[in-house]
Design a protein around this nucleic acid. Structure first.
Lengths: 339, 339
DNA sequence: CCACTCTATTGCAACGTCGCATTCAACGTC
DNA sequence: GACGTTGAATGCGACGTTGCAATAGAGTGG
């Protein structure tokens, strides 16, 4: 059905090795032969067998991207950038959705499924630091988010503590004093939410305010519904913050949606700031103030780390901690202008 | 570095074939031997070499998903469902972003990159029908969207004409008469926009209205910005429709955003309906009326088609045309209640 | 007790490709 | 005219796995 080097060689009247040389273009081939072989290649519609190449080369040219969920805007945008950057490096991306399942994350890190990928970019959700960095890995890995690496994997992330601090400070600067935090996840081993909470508290304390536990609304996941529920819980408890720092844009949008439905004027009575700079935030009503991580750099640097580990020998290089720059995009949701 | 069957066999004092039997669990192995081999497997941390397996099996266990862009909500949600459904079938998904590049789409369909995937699900953007179905393919393919198949590939899609008709009819039912259509793409060979335009016109004509070219706003791509530009163009031209049917939710959200910014009251003065049922639409202000394709079924049926083609011999089965059910979700953007 | 079946295990070969070493011919140089 | 050099093409083997056929041994029934 599909033709192999052998078939092409037979048709062109040369050895398989010569055909291989023509295909790869590496060794020297006489012009006349090259033309003849090329004609045979075209006639048979030869396509190299990737599995055989991989076996020979000891590499698959695949890298894995393991994220909790592909359908959320943040991970969708990030995945898109990673796929794009990988294409430029002639890598193909295979996507795994862990759905926040610790076993799935563990399985991927250990490579239990077999040596399919040359490297792995994983955004951990359920696994704690020690599990992530403790055990040996069969494949180079880059952790997105999380805290600084102790173990074997590189880490690429923004400075969550600083960024959360800046966002909160921005809200304080416009005179807000009762600022709610939507997004703590005390039930998870994951560090990201904890870091953003720490930044939020830092900012409050620096402004001379005491963090109020009643204003910290935990969530189970990071979807709009969770933000909506958190805001509902606050309002139903009679708590009326004058600003909200949500740990992700989706949480912020869900919360803002409920606030407006309940008749709260945004941003007059309640300002909002989020984290991630997803596209919807820019088109929300009002547009959402947010921390803007440089997602393109996250993608680029992650792949760079993988490339270094994959291609450099033995890699005695200690685990890297790559800090990605971020900005604060101030939009109407935290200003005084009406939407 | 990494251990092979041979290493495990040496350690356990058996042949590689026996180790292989233990790993696969297919052939019968004495309990005592199984235990001993398993111990060796664990000790060496054996991981099967996927490339070798693939070479032997003639399959890679990979399927390709080619979509214009991963970061758009619709494709993100769809990709997520396809990855999920593929995992259940023990398939791994590799993602290609075509970015609307006809060459990229062609390359994937022809499998120029080599026989990497066992099957391909492609959502064409730039290629026209004849290119999609004309030439022979090296790998089973499923087309998402597009029109009915003439050639070799199966096709999975909602009935775009009917769905667009229903959405428009719904707008007409609330008394709207000047209904704009945002989303025609006359510059593309792709059929989807043309089908939705046809459905929109059908509904108008059935209501005794003449489709007005001035109310049909073409777009280049399907992002929020395109919807925003389209609405800006309409309003700047002094055209003030009393309803908008946008061919995707993103277009609708962008258009609605601009309308509200310009002081148009939604839905009182202008009703909106979209297509796709992306999550943001449900949390928009006001929530967006939209055509809801059964995305889970799109994922399931696509994979089913691929599975049939991949596993069934010779496949004399003619190309399938799978029509996916849809619904119309009526929300506040097309009602009379305030947001 | 022999023929036969069944279980457990094994060796061989092949999947398609490419690195390495080799061969062969042509050519130029001393 | 012998010799080294270069260019072109080839054959061999190995990457790690598993299907197939074969083997040896244990168990069963007449």
């Amino acid at each position: 059905m599909s033709s192999r080097l052998k078939d092409v060689a037979a048709l062109a009247g040369v050895s398989t090795r010569t055909v291989s040389n023509v295909v790869s273009g590496s060794a020297s081939v006489a012009e006349e032969t090259r033309v003849r072989v090329q004609a045979a290649l075209d006639e048979l519609g030869y396509r190299p067998n990737v599995a055989a190449r991989n076996l020979r080369a000891g590499r698959t040219g695949l890298i894995g991207l393991a994220i909790p969920e592909l359908y959320s805007p943040y991970f969708g945008e990030l995945a898109s950038l990673i796929v794009e950057a990988a294409q430029q490096r002639a890598w193909t991306v295979v996507i795994d959705q862990t759905s926040g399942d610790p076993d799935a994350e563990r399985r991927l890190l250990e490579g239990t499924g077999g040596r399919l990928v040359d490297g792995l970019i994983i955004s951990p959700w359920a696994l704690g630091p020690e599990e992530l960095t403790g055990r040996p890995r069969h494949v180079p890995a880059v952790l997105l988010g999380e805290r600084r690496p102790h173990g074997l994997a590189d880490r690429v992330a923004v400075d969550n503590v600083l960024a959360a601090d800046e966002a909160t400070t921005h809200l304080l600067a416009s005179g807000r004093r009762r600022i709610a935090a939507i997004g703590p996840q005390p039930h998870l081993r994951n560090e990201t939410a904890a870091q953003r909470l720490a930044g939020y508290r830092n900012a409050l304390r620096r402004a001379g305010l005491h963090p109020d536990p009643a204003l910290e609304q935990p969530v189970t996941t990071l979807h709009r519904t969770d933000g909506a529920e958190a805001m509902t819980a606050l309002l139903d408890a009679g708590i009326r913050p004058d600003a909200v720092f949500a740990f992700t844009d989706e949480l912020a949008l869900g919360a803002m949606h409920v606030a407006r439905r309940r008749g709260v004027r945004v941003p007059h009575e309640m300002a909002f700031a989020g984290f991630d700079d997803i596209e919807d935030g820019r088109y929300a009503n009002p547009p959402l103030t947010t921390v803007v991580p440089d997602k393109r750099q996250i993608a680029e640097r992650s792949l760079q780390c993988l490339a270094d580990r994959i291609y450099s020998p033995a890699s005695a290089v200690p685990p890297l901690d790559v800090v990605i720059p971020h900005q604060l995009a101030v939009r109407a949701s935290s200003g005084w202008t009406d939407s």
